[in-house]
C-alpha cells in the first residue's frame, strides 16, 4: 500500500513534454532543416522549438497558395462560421493558453486578459466576414450607360510576421482580418514566445479551417526575411513591430515583385486595433463594367 501510494505521487511521475512543431498545410511537421532553438524566459528555456528554414518558407507558401482559391470561394457566411468556430475552440482551451503565456513570461492577469481579448477578436472578425464587402464596395455612377461596381477581393497569399511582445493576441489580430476576406497566410510566430502560437495552430487544426489557410512557422525573422520577401508567390507582407532596418530590407526585396507591404506598430489590446480597415489592407479593389441596355416603357432610344 505504502509503496503504491508513493508510486502514485505526483512528484515521481515523469512529465510528458510537448514537442512544439510547426503548422504547415494542416499538418504538424518538424522543420525540414531539423534545426531547433531554445527561447529563454527569465533564465529558463522554453524547450526545443523548430528553427524554420528557407525551405519551410517555401513549403508553407506552396500550401498557402494551393489553399487560397478554394478558401476564397467559400461563402462569406461559411468563413464567418469557421472564424467563430476558432473562437469556440480557443475558449475551450483557455487553461492551456494561460499556462503557456505564463511560461512565456506573462503575468497571470495579463495572460488572462490576452486570452479573452483573443477570443473576442476572433468573434469580432467572424462578424465582419460577410459585412466588410458592404462597407467598402461601391456602385459607381459613371457618365455612360454602364453598370459599374467595385468590390474587394483577397490579395492572395500573405506572409505575416507576428508581434514579438503580444504572442497570442498579436498573432490572432493579424491572422483573423487576413483570412476573413479569403486570403491564406503564412505567419512567423513571436521568436521569444512561440509556444502559444503552436498551440493556436492546434486550435486551428480542430476548427474546420482548411489545411493551408493558416500556416505557422517558428524561427528567426532575420534569417527568413529575404526568403519570404523575395518569394514570387507571396502577394503581400504584414510586419508587426520590426525595426527600421529589417522593415527596409523586407520592403526592398518586396519591390522586386511589387508586393504590398503593411507595417504595423500596433497596441493590439486597444479596442481600435480591431477594425475592418485591416481587412481592407489585404484586399484588392476590382472594378467591373457592363453595358446597360437602354429601353424603357416608352420604347427604345436606338
Amino acid at each position: 500500500m505504502t509503496e503504491s501510494n508513493e508510486n502514485s505521487g505526483k512528484s515521481d511521475r515523469l512529465e510528458v513534454l510537448k514537442t512544439y512543431k510547426m503548422y504547415i498545410d494542416g499538418k504538424f511537421p518538424r522543420t525540414e532543416s531539423a534545426r531547433y532553438y531554445q527561447p529563454v524566459v527569465n533564465g529558463t528555456s522554453l524547450g526545443n522549438v523548430c528553427l524554420a528554414s528557407r525551405k519551410d518558407v517555401r513549403n508553407s507558401v506552396v500550401a498557402a497558395r494551393s489553399a487560397q482559391a478554394a478558401w476564397a470561394r467559400r461563402t462569406a457566411y461559411n468563413r464567418a462560421q469557421i472564424l467563430y468556430r476558432i473562437a469556440e475552440m480557443l475558449e475551450g482551451r483557455s487553461q492551456q493558453f494561460l499556462d503557456e503565456l505564463i511560461r512565456q513570461g506573462m503575468e497571470a492577469d495579463s495572460a488572462e486578459t490576452q486570452i479573452t481579448q483573443s477570443i473576442d477578436r476572433l468573434i469580432y472578425y467572424a462578424g465582419w466576414c460577410d459585412k466588410y464587402q458592404q462597407v467598402f464596395s461601391s456602385v459607381n455612377p459613371v457618365a455612360s450607360s454602364h453598370f459599374n461596381f467595385s468590390t474587394l477581393e483577397p490579395v492572395g497569399v500573405v506572409f505575416a510576421v507576428a508581434s514579438r511582445d503580444c504572442p497570442l493576441l498579436g498573432l490572432i489580430s493579424l491572422i483573423a482580418p487576413v483570412i476573413a476576406s479569403g486570403n491564406t497566410c503564412v505567419v512567423l510566430a513571436s521568436e521569444n514566445s512561440p509556444l502559444s502560437a503552436i498551440t493556436f495552430a492546434e486550435v486551428l487544426a480542430t476548427s474546420d479551417v482548411p489545411g493551408g489557410v493558416v500556416n505557422i512557422l517558428t524561427g528567426r525573422v532575420e534569417e527568413l526575411s529575404e526568403h519570404f520577401s523575395r518569394h514570387l508567390d507571396v502577394n503581400a507582407i504584414a510586419c508587426d513591430g520590426l525595426g527600421v532596418d529589417l522593415n527596409t530590407t523586407i520592403k526592398e526585396f518586396a519591390s522586386e515583385t511589387i508586393k504590398r507591404v503593411k507595417i504595423y506598430h500596433q497596441e493590439w489590446s486597444a479596442e481600435a486595433a480591431a477594425n475592418p480597415y485591416l481587412i481592407q489592407d489585404f484586399c484588392e479593389v476590382k472594378t467591373t463594367w457592363h453595358p446597360i441596355e437602354q429601353i424603357t416603357e416608352s420604347g427604345a432610344s436606338y
Partner: peptide
C-alpha cells in the same frame, strides 16, 4: 439562321 446577338450599347 443563328442570328448573332446584339449589344445595344455597343451598337449605339
Amino acid at each position: 439562321f443563328k442570328s448573332p446577338v446584339i449589344d445595344q450599347v455597343g451598337v449605339v
